[in-house]
Nucleic acid binder design. Structure first.
Lengths: 250, 250
DNA sequence: CCTCCTTATTACTCCGACATATTATGAGCG
DNA sequence: CGCTCATAATATGTCGGAGTAATAAGGAGG
């Protein structure tokens, strides 16, 4: 049984009705409106045309449009009130750490400043997570990290399998912290990192081999050395930011 | 002249839900289902009854029920597929940092372990934020912090106004970091902290005056001393955790 | 035992009507 | 002239039903 994945090219090919199999209509509408908002096409304070007008313009029923709006409302992007209409909320109300919102943010040309902020957050959270992982990890955690490391060596970051292994490695570390809140944050940051990594690949080949950095983090966690793990992870993040920044400047 | 039968009265009058004004019906349904999921009434893997059955049981239309499901889907709590039904997703897919989800998590008796994890995250993020705020704050930031500090002194944490001032203080610090991602995280953590603070008050009077701790953080940020700001904030969080833990143990 | 096809079930989409909440308007009055 | 309060206008909210499409499950054929 072939488990086909939906390629990015498919939805990019049909910008108007970006609706592939498995993707619901209201999901597609939410995706379109979400990217439009994140890209600045609709600015905070703007009021969307009424339900009837907009749903007709999009050629969809009012129900589908409303369900899409509920999704955006749940993510803090918009708010609706009778008679007043649906307006885009100020940016600080947006749920920027929502994985789907992050995907929308990176759908177009990503804002360099926002990427910098995400890496700053990553530089705060991941070293601290690595320190705790070094103290709490068990054999299963170490095995998951080592497997991911091996997979990264095999496929390199130029392939989707390699990037998946990279995410697995970081997820294994976060999992070893035994902290739900940290793990959820990892899902968000991991998604963002994935987008930026993909972006790096889009411009040119990765200038540096990231495997040794990951190996250092693994060794420190395996040795139970929290300080070394935090330091190694901090270095990893800093270098990743450097790579991404140079790729975006070019 | 219209002889209307009880339509949405049942849900509205339902004791626990208390659908307040300004709160929509689908929002109330999402709130109810959300709290039921967070409280464990519906466990991950459980399949909800079909749209028709459940909407009739709740005495609401399918539209309202569906829009509520879209909200839960957007927050990663459930996923729906034709023929398979709507099932509760595993916990690691939940958007636990979504402010609304956090509210649902604290609607019932909060899980002590989850609270500990949230404070651990706070202990990671807020000191780092304070360090950066010390480096980047301007006069407006300092004024906002000082105003919040004054308001905290006036009202104390026993009043809603005082707790709002507490949130304002922390938000001012996060705002001074000039980092969107950090600010969003602050909204989440702030919401959670608000719930726990409220919980502390519910059990007994606050055993210690938190104002001096906040003042120390302010002084360090005003002086531009990043290390001192981080250390003071770390101490503040640790003490807050201690208070909350003792309040919950009792 | 596996593959392919059929079928039944379930969510998904659409439609049109009515109810409700909020803003805007303007009449009446101090 | 400016304020208050009732009234009307309008967009969102809620409803019920009909029909479509997708998918898991079970059966036919290899």
């Amino acid at each position: 049984m072939k488990n086909r994945i939906v390629k990015e090219a498919d939805i990019a090919k049909a910008p108007e009705d970006a609706r592939g199999p498995g993707r619901r209509l209201h999901g597609a509408i939410a995706h379109r409106l979400g990217t439009d908002i994140l890209s600045g096409k609709y600015a905070p304070g703007d009021i969307l045309s009424g339900e009837i007008a907009f749903s007709e313009e999009l050629q969809v029923s009012r129900s589908a449009y409303r369900e899409a709006i509920q999704v955006l409302t749940a993510k803090g992007l918009v708010a609706s009130r009778p008679k007043a209409g649906t307006r885009v909320l100020p940016r600080d109300r947006w749920n920027l750490l929502d994985p789907e919102v992050l995907g929308w943010a990176f759908a177009g040309e990503p804002d360099i400043e926002f990427v910098r902020n995400l890496f700053e957050l990553r530089a705060i959270v991941e070293p601290a997570a690595a320190r705790r992982a070094a103290a709490r990890r068990d054999k299963a955690d170490l095995k998951a990290m080592k497997d991911a490391l091996v997979a990264m060596r095999r496929h390199t970051l130029t392939t989707e399998a390699g990037r998946a292994a990279d995410r697995d490695f970081h997820n294994a570390i976060l999992h070893a912290t035994r902290n739900d809140a940290l793990m959820v944050l990892s899902a968000s940051i991991g998604a963002a990192v994935n987008w930026t990594t993909q972006f790096k690949q889009r411009t040119r080949a990765l200038p540096r081999n990231p495997i040794p950095d990951h190996a250092r983090v693994y060794d420190a966690i395996a040795a139970g050395d929290g300080d070394a793990a935090a330091q190694a992870m901090n270095q990893l993040v800093e270098l990743a930011l450097e790579d991404t920044r140079s790729a975006m400047d070019a």
